[in-house]
Design a protein around this nucleic acid. Structure first.
Lengths: 160, 160
DNA sequence: GTACTTTTACTCGGATACCGTCTGTCCGAGTAATTATGG
DNA sequence: CCATAATTACTCGGACAGACGGTATCCGAGTAAAAGTAC
Protein backbone atom coordinates (compact mmCIF):
# COMPACT_ATOMS: atom_id res chain seq x y z
CA UNK A 1 0.00 0.00 0.00
CA UNK A 2 2.21 2.76 -1.32
CA UNK A 3 1.35 5.88 -3.22
CA UNK A 4 2.33 5.70 -6.87
CA UNK A 5 5.44 7.58 -7.89
CA UNK A 6 3.30 9.01 -10.67
CA UNK A 7 1.52 11.20 -8.15
CA UNK A 8 4.75 12.82 -7.04
CA UNK A 9 5.82 13.29 -10.63
CA UNK A 10 2.49 14.86 -11.51
CA UNK A 11 2.70 17.23 -8.56
CA UNK A 12 6.10 18.47 -9.64
CA UNK A 13 5.02 18.73 -13.26
CA UNK A 14 2.12 20.95 -12.23
CA UNK A 15 4.48 22.80 -9.95
CA UNK A 16 6.79 23.42 -12.88
CA UNK A 17 4.00 24.65 -15.12
CA UNK A 18 2.97 27.19 -12.48
CA UNK A 19 6.11 29.19 -13.28
CA UNK A 20 5.13 29.72 -16.92
CA UNK A 21 4.01 33.16 -18.08
CA UNK A 22 0.47 33.52 -19.44
CA UNK A 23 -0.22 31.92 -22.82
CA UNK A 24 3.13 30.11 -22.76
CA UNK A 25 3.41 26.32 -22.80
CA UNK A 26 6.01 23.66 -22.11
CA UNK A 27 6.38 20.51 -24.25
CA UNK A 28 5.75 17.23 -22.47
CA UNK A 29 9.14 15.84 -23.29
CA UNK A 30 10.87 18.84 -21.73
CA UNK A 31 8.95 18.32 -18.51
CA UNK A 32 9.59 14.60 -18.37
CA UNK A 33 13.26 15.09 -19.03
CA UNK A 34 13.67 17.56 -16.18
CA UNK A 35 11.69 15.35 -13.81
CA UNK A 36 13.65 12.31 -14.83
CA UNK A 37 10.72 10.17 -15.96
CA UNK A 38 10.29 8.08 -19.07
CA UNK A 39 8.89 10.47 -21.72
CA UNK A 40 6.19 8.28 -23.23
CA UNK A 41 4.79 7.08 -19.95
CA UNK A 42 4.89 10.52 -18.46
CA UNK A 43 2.76 11.86 -21.29
CA UNK A 44 0.02 9.54 -20.07
CA UNK A 45 0.19 11.12 -16.66
CA UNK A 46 -0.03 14.57 -18.23
CA UNK A 47 -3.10 13.53 -20.15
CA UNK A 48 -4.71 12.39 -16.91
CA UNK A 49 -4.13 15.89 -15.59
CA UNK A 50 -5.71 17.26 -18.75
CA UNK A 51 -8.75 15.02 -18.31
CA UNK A 52 -9.07 16.29 -14.76
CA UNK A 53 -9.07 19.89 -16.04
CA UNK A 54 -5.99 20.76 -14.05
CA UNK A 55 -3.87 21.58 -17.10
CA UNK A 56 -4.57 22.14 -20.78
CA UNK A 57 -2.72 21.04 -23.86
CA UNK A 58 -1.90 22.72 -27.16
CA UNK A 59 -1.31 20.44 -30.14
CA UNK A 60 1.02 20.99 -33.08
CA UNK A 61 4.32 22.78 -33.44
CA UNK A 62 4.95 25.12 -30.49
CA UNK A 63 2.49 23.01 -28.59
CA UNK A 64 2.75 21.78 -25.02
CA UNK A 65 1.06 22.03 -21.65
CA UNK A 66 0.08 24.84 -19.32
CA UNK A 67 -2.07 25.29 -16.24
CA UNK A 68 -5.81 25.39 -16.64
CA UNK A 69 -6.56 26.84 -13.21
CA UNK A 70 -4.65 29.21 -11.02
CA UNK A 71 -2.08 27.61 -8.70
CA UNK A 72 -4.18 28.46 -5.63
CA UNK A 73 -6.99 26.36 -7.02
CA UNK A 74 -5.00 23.19 -7.62
CA UNK A 75 -4.57 21.11 -4.48
CA UNK A 76 -2.32 18.12 -4.01
CA UNK A 77 -5.51 16.14 -3.53
CA UNK A 78 -6.76 17.17 -6.97
CA UNK A 79 -3.61 15.78 -8.52
CA UNK A 80 -3.78 12.65 -6.41
CA UNK A 81 -7.32 11.95 -7.60
CA UNK A 82 -6.43 12.72 -11.20
CA UNK A 83 -3.64 10.15 -11.18
CA UNK A 84 -4.84 7.45 -8.81
CA UNK A 85 -8.53 7.66 -9.59
CA UNK A 86 -11.41 8.09 -7.20
CA UNK A 87 -11.33 4.67 -5.58
CA UNK A 88 -10.99 4.82 -1.82
CA UNK A 89 -8.10 3.41 0.15
CA UNK A 90 -10.26 0.64 1.54
CA UNK A 91 -13.14 -1.31 0.08
CA UNK A 92 -14.87 -3.94 2.13
CA UNK A 93 -14.53 -7.52 1.01
CA UNK A 94 -17.64 -8.58 2.86
CA UNK A 95 -15.77 -10.89 5.18
CA UNK A 96 -18.07 -10.35 8.11
CA UNK A 97 -20.95 -11.38 5.90
CA UNK A 98 -19.10 -14.63 5.27
CA UNK A 99 -18.43 -15.07 8.96
CA UNK A 100 -22.05 -14.58 9.97
CA UNK A 101 -23.54 -16.15 6.86
CA UNK A 102 -25.38 -13.00 5.96
CA UNK A 103 -26.38 -11.94 2.48
CA UNK A 104 -23.45 -10.15 0.79
CA UNK A 105 -25.76 -7.32 -0.19
CA UNK A 106 -26.27 -6.42 3.45
CA UNK A 107 -24.38 -3.36 4.64
CA UNK A 108 -22.87 -4.20 8.01
CA UNK A 109 -19.07 -3.93 7.69
CA UNK A 110 -17.50 -3.03 11.00
CA UNK A 111 -14.51 -1.47 9.30
CA UNK A 112 -16.08 0.62 6.55
CA UNK A 113 -17.03 3.52 8.78
CA UNK A 114 -13.67 3.57 10.46
CA UNK A 115 -11.76 3.43 7.21
CA UNK A 116 -13.90 6.14 5.69
CA UNK A 117 -13.17 8.37 8.65
CA UNK A 118 -9.45 7.66 8.43
CA UNK A 119 -9.37 8.38 4.73
CA UNK A 120 -11.31 11.56 5.25
CA UNK A 121 -8.71 12.77 7.75
CA UNK A 122 -6.00 11.93 5.25
CA UNK A 123 -7.73 13.75 2.42
CA UNK A 124 -8.29 16.84 4.53
CA UNK A 125 -4.55 17.32 4.86
CA UNK A 126 -3.97 16.79 1.15
CA UNK A 127 -6.65 19.29 0.25
CA UNK A 128 -5.19 22.17 2.22
CA UNK A 129 -1.90 22.17 0.31
CA UNK A 130 -2.02 23.76 -3.12
CA UNK A 131 0.47 24.35 -5.88
CA UNK A 132 0.56 27.96 -4.76
CA UNK A 133 1.46 27.04 -1.18
CA UNK A 134 4.11 24.66 -2.47
CA UNK A 135 5.65 27.47 -4.51
CA UNK A 136 5.67 29.62 -1.40
CA UNK A 137 7.47 26.94 0.59
CA UNK A 138 9.83 26.50 -2.32
CA UNK A 139 10.95 30.10 -2.23
CA UNK A 140 11.70 29.99 1.46
CA UNK A 141 14.17 27.22 0.78
CA UNK A 142 17.86 27.94 0.93
CA UNK A 143 18.71 27.00 -2.62
CA UNK A 144 18.63 30.40 -4.31
CA UNK A 145 21.39 29.53 -6.74
CA UNK A 146 19.70 26.34 -7.90
CA UNK A 147 16.35 28.09 -8.12
CA UNK A 148 17.88 30.78 -10.32
CA UNK A 149 19.42 28.12 -12.51
CA UNK A 150 16.06 26.40 -12.73
CA UNK A 151 14.30 29.59 -13.73
CA UNK A 152 16.83 30.28 -16.48
CA UNK A 153 16.42 26.76 -17.82
CA UNK A 154 12.65 27.10 -17.74
CA UNK A 155 12.70 30.38 -19.64
CA UNK A 156 14.95 28.84 -22.26
CA UNK A 157 12.56 25.95 -22.79
CA UNK A 158 9.36 27.94 -22.65
CA UNK A 159 7.34 28.06 -25.86
CA UNK A 160 5.36 31.22 -26.59
CA UNK B 1 -3.11 2.50 -3.77
CA UNK B 2 -5.49 0.15 -2.04
CA UNK B 3 -5.26 -1.55 1.31
CA UNK B 4 -4.56 -5.27 1.06
CA UNK B 5 -7.48 -7.60 1.65
CA UNK B 6 -5.16 -9.42 4.03
CA UNK B 7 -5.55 -6.59 6.53
CA UNK B 8 -9.30 -6.98 6.65
CA UNK B 9 -8.96 -10.75 6.97
CA UNK B 10 -6.46 -10.36 9.79
CA UNK B 11 -8.74 -7.95 11.62
CA UNK B 12 -11.62 -10.38 11.52
CA UNK B 13 -9.39 -13.29 12.49
CA UNK B 14 -8.27 -11.38 15.57
CA UNK B 15 -11.86 -10.37 16.13
CA UNK B 16 -12.86 -14.04 16.04
CA UNK B 17 -10.15 -15.08 18.46
CA UNK B 18 -11.33 -12.48 20.97
CA UNK B 19 -14.41 -14.60 21.64
CA UNK B 20 -12.39 -17.60 22.82
CA UNK B 21 -12.33 -18.50 26.51
CA UNK B 22 -9.00 -18.35 28.32
CA UNK B 23 -6.46 -21.04 27.45
CA UNK B 24 -8.55 -22.14 24.47
CA UNK B 25 -7.26 -22.00 20.90
CA UNK B 26 -8.66 -22.18 17.38
CA UNK B 27 -6.86 -24.02 14.54
CA UNK B 28 -5.76 -21.86 11.64
CA UNK B 29 -7.69 -23.86 9.10
CA UNK B 30 -10.93 -23.37 11.01
CA UNK B 31 -10.40 -19.61 11.02
CA UNK B 32 -9.50 -19.41 7.35
CA UNK B 33 -12.49 -21.52 6.40
CA UNK B 34 -14.93 -19.31 8.25
CA UNK B 35 -13.37 -16.17 6.81
CA UNK B 36 -13.38 -17.61 3.32
CA UNK B 37 -9.67 -17.31 2.63
CA UNK B 38 -7.25 -19.80 1.17
CA UNK B 39 -5.99 -21.87 4.13
CA UNK B 40 -2.28 -22.00 3.35
CA UNK B 41 -1.95 -18.35 2.49
CA UNK B 42 -4.01 -17.30 5.45
CA UNK B 43 -1.62 -19.14 7.76
CA UNK B 44 1.07 -16.75 6.60
CA UNK B 45 -1.04 -13.82 7.71
CA UNK B 46 -1.60 -15.46 11.09
CA UNK B 47 2.10 -15.92 11.50
CA UNK B 48 2.61 -12.23 10.84
CA UNK B 49 0.23 -11.54 13.69
CA UNK B 50 2.25 -13.93 15.84
CA UNK B 51 5.49 -12.13 14.94
CA UNK B 52 3.85 -8.86 15.93
CA UNK B 53 2.93 -10.35 19.32
CA UNK B 54 -0.76 -9.82 18.74
CA UNK B 55 -1.62 -13.51 18.93
CA UNK B 56 0.20 -16.64 20.05
CA UNK B 57 0.30 -20.10 18.58
CA UNK B 58 0.28 -23.58 20.06
CA UNK B 59 1.87 -26.36 18.02
CA UNK B 60 0.89 -29.99 17.83
CA UNK B 61 -2.41 -31.78 18.23
CA UNK B 62 -5.04 -29.56 19.86
CA UNK B 63 -2.92 -26.66 18.78
CA UNK B 64 -4.04 -23.40 17.21
CA UNK B 65 -4.09 -19.65 17.80
CA UNK B 66 -5.31 -17.38 20.55
CA UNK B 67 -4.91 -13.74 21.53
CA UNK B 68 -1.70 -12.64 23.12
CA UNK B 69 -2.99 -9.32 24.44
CA UNK B 70 -6.38 -8.27 25.70
CA UNK B 71 -8.80 -7.03 23.01
CA UNK B 72 -8.61 -3.48 24.37
CA UNK B 73 -4.91 -3.47 23.66
CA UNK B 74 -5.07 -4.53 20.02
CA UNK B 75 -5.84 -1.66 17.66
CA UNK B 76 -6.71 -1.86 14.01
CA UNK B 77 -3.48 0.02 13.42
CA UNK B 78 -1.50 -2.73 15.16
CA UNK B 79 -2.95 -5.28 12.77
CA UNK B 80 -2.41 -3.02 9.79
CA UNK B 81 1.28 -2.65 10.64
CA UNK B 82 1.64 -6.36 11.31
CA UNK B 83 0.33 -7.24 7.86
CA UNK B 84 1.47 -4.36 5.66
CA UNK B 85 4.76 -3.63 7.36
CA UNK B 86 6.03 -0.34 8.71
CA UNK B 87 6.68 1.41 5.42
CA UNK B 88 4.83 4.70 5.13
CA UNK B 89 2.21 5.51 2.53
CA UNK B 90 4.55 7.88 0.74
CA UNK B 91 8.27 7.81 0.20
CA UNK B 92 9.94 10.63 -1.67
CA UNK B 93 11.51 9.76 -4.99
CA UNK B 94 13.79 12.78 -4.87
CA UNK B 95 12.23 14.35 -7.93
CA UNK B 96 12.76 17.89 -6.76
CA UNK B 97 16.46 17.10 -6.37
CA UNK B 98 16.45 16.07 -10.03
CA UNK B 99 14.60 19.23 -11.01
CA UNK B 100 17.01 21.52 -9.21
CA UNK B 101 20.11 19.41 -9.81
CA UNK B 102 20.74 19.03 -6.10
CA UNK B 103 22.52 16.13 -4.46
CA UNK B 104 20.04 13.30 -3.85
CA UNK B 105 21.21 13.06 -0.25
CA UNK B 106 19.86 16.53 0.45
CA UNK B 107 16.62 16.59 2.40
CA UNK B 108 14.35 19.15 0.75
CA UNK B 109 11.24 17.36 -0.47
CA UNK B 110 8.27 19.70 -0.56
CA UNK B 111 5.84 16.82 -0.17
CA UNK B 112 7.41 14.76 2.60
CA UNK B 113 6.17 16.92 5.45
CA UNK B 114 2.69 17.14 4.02
CA UNK B 115 2.44 13.43 3.40
CA UNK B 116 3.76 12.63 6.86
CA UNK B 117 1.10 14.86 8.34
CA UNK B 118 -1.61 13.26 6.24
CA UNK B 119 -0.51 9.76 7.17
CA UNK B 120 -0.35 10.74 10.80
CA UNK B 121 -3.96 11.89 10.68
CA UNK B 122 -4.89 8.61 9.04
CA UNK B 123 -3.06 6.54 11.62
CA UNK B 124 -4.66 8.41 14.50
CA UNK B 125 -8.07 7.19 13.42
CA UNK B 126 -6.88 3.61 13.03
CA UNK B 127 -5.28 3.63 16.45
CA UNK B 128 -8.39 4.62 18.33
CA UNK B 129 -10.37 1.58 17.20
CA UNK B 130 -9.54 -1.66 18.99
CA UNK B 131 -10.75 -5.20 18.79
CA UNK B 132 -12.70 -4.51 21.97
CA UNK B 133 -14.49 -1.53 20.45
CA UNK B 134 -15.25 -3.55 17.35
CA UNK B 135 -16.82 -6.27 19.48
CA UNK B 136 -18.91 -3.62 21.17
CA UNK B 137 -20.15 -2.29 17.84
CA UNK B 138 -20.76 -5.85 16.76
CA UNK B 139 -23.16 -6.51 19.61
CA UNK B 140 -25.19 -3.43 18.90
CA UNK B 141 -25.90 -4.79 15.45
CA UNK B 142 -29.31 -6.20 14.65
CA UNK B 143 -28.24 -9.70 13.74
CA UNK B 144 -28.83 -11.49 17.03
CA UNK B 145 -29.81 -14.73 15.37
CA UNK B 146 -26.69 -14.86 13.20
CA UNK B 147 -24.52 -13.88 16.15
CA UNK B 148 -25.97 -16.72 18.18
CA UNK B 149 -25.32 -19.11 15.34
CA UNK B 150 -21.77 -17.83 15.10
CA UNK B 151 -21.18 -18.32 18.83
CA UNK B 152 -22.45 -21.89 18.67
CA UNK B 153 -20.20 -22.66 15.74
CA UNK B 154 -17.25 -21.12 17.52
CA UNK B 155 -17.82 -23.14 20.67
CA UNK B 156 -18.05 -26.30 18.61
CA UNK B 157 -14.70 -25.60 16.95
CA UNK B 158 -12.89 -24.34 20.03
CA UNK B 159 -10.02 -26.51 21.20
CA UNK B 160 -9.32 -26.63 24.91
C1' DG C 1 3.19 38.42 -53.00
C1' DT C 2 -0.35 35.26 -52.46
C1' DA C 3 -2.24 30.59 -52.42
C1' DC C 4 -1.16 25.98 -51.91
C1' DT C 5 1.62 21.97 -50.46
C1' DT C 6 5.06 19.79 -47.66
C1' DT C 7 7.61 19.36 -43.65
C1' DT C 8 8.08 19.52 -38.81
C1' DA C 9 7.07 19.21 -33.90
C1' DC C 10 3.94 18.50 -31.06
C1' DT C 11 -0.48 15.95 -28.56
C1' DC C 12 -3.63 11.91 -28.49
C1' DG C 13 -4.93 7.13 -27.61
C1' DG C 14 -4.55 2.25 -28.31
C1' DA C 15 -1.79 -2.13 -28.05
C1' DT C 16 1.63 -4.45 -25.84
C1' DA C 17 5.61 -5.94 -22.89
C1' DC C 18 8.05 -5.79 -18.39
C1' DC C 19 8.33 -6.25 -13.65
C1' DG C 20 7.41 -6.10 -8.75
C1' DT C 21 3.98 -7.26 -5.37
C1' DC C 22 0.06 -9.61 -3.55
C1' DT C 23 -2.07 -13.89 -3.57
C1' DG C 24 -2.17 -18.83 -3.64
C1' DT C 25 -0.06 -23.58 -3.49
C1' DC C 26 3.13 -27.16 -2.25
C1' DC C 27 6.43 -29.41 0.50
C1' DG C 28 9.42 -30.83 4.31
C1' DA C 29 10.39 -30.04 9.20
C1' DG C 30 9.18 -29.38 14.05
C1' DT C 31 5.96 -30.15 18.00
C1' DA C 32 2.88 -32.24 21.17
C1' DA C 33 -1.23 -34.99 22.24
C1' DT C 34 -3.08 -39.38 21.31
C1' DT C 35 -2.88 -44.08 20.27
C1' DA C 36 -0.59 -48.44 19.67
C1' DT C 37 2.72 -51.80 21.12
C1' DG C 38 5.64 -54.77 24.06
C1' DG C 39 7.04 -56.60 28.23
C1' DC D 1 0.17 -51.48 34.22
C1' DC D 2 3.88 -48.91 32.62
C1' DA D 3 7.35 -47.43 29.32
C1' DT D 4 8.27 -46.75 24.72
C1' DA D 5 7.21 -46.25 19.86
C1' DA D 6 4.12 -44.88 16.15
C1' DT D 7 0.46 -42.09 14.61
C1' DT D 8 -2.02 -37.91 14.20
C1' DA D 9 -3.03 -32.99 13.91
C1' DC D 10 -1.36 -29.11 14.28
C1' DT D 11 2.31 -24.87 13.47
C1' DC D 12 6.50 -23.20 11.02
C1' DG D 13 9.06 -21.43 7.13
C1' DG D 14 11.00 -21.75 2.65
C1' DA D 15 10.36 -22.22 -2.42
C1' DC D 16 7.69 -21.32 -6.17
C1' DA D 17 3.61 -20.43 -9.53
C1' DG D 18 -0.15 -17.28 -10.94
C1' DA D 19 -2.61 -12.83 -11.20
C1' DC D 20 -2.72 -8.16 -11.18
C1' DG D 21 -1.46 -3.38 -11.46
C1' DG D 22 2.07 0.20 -12.18
C1' DT D 23 5.59 1.24 -15.28
C1' DA D 24 7.55 1.57 -19.78
C1' DT D 25 7.78 1.39 -24.94
C1' DC D 26 6.11 1.55 -29.60
C1' DC D 27 3.08 2.88 -33.23
C1' DG D 28 -0.30 5.28 -36.08
C1' DA D 29 -3.38 9.27 -36.13
C1' DG D 30 -4.55 14.09 -35.46
C1' DT D 31 -3.15 19.04 -35.23
C1' DA D 32 -1.07 23.38 -36.14
C1' DA D 33 2.96 26.23 -37.03
C1' DA D 34 6.67 26.80 -40.11
C1' DA D 35 8.93 26.20 -44.41
C1' DG D 36 8.90 25.35 -49.15
C1' DT D 37 6.78 25.86 -53.85
C1' DA D 38 4.19 27.58 -57.84
C1' DC D 39 2.23 31.15 -60.35
Amino acid sequence: MQMKTGVEQAVYATFMLSFLPDKAVLPGEVISQRIGASPTYFQKLLRKLVSADLITSVAGVKGGFKLQRRPEQISVYDIYIAIEGQQSLYTSNGIIQDMLHISPTTQCCLLSDLMAEAESAWITVLKKETIASLVQKFHTATYEQEIDSFHRWLEEKTVY
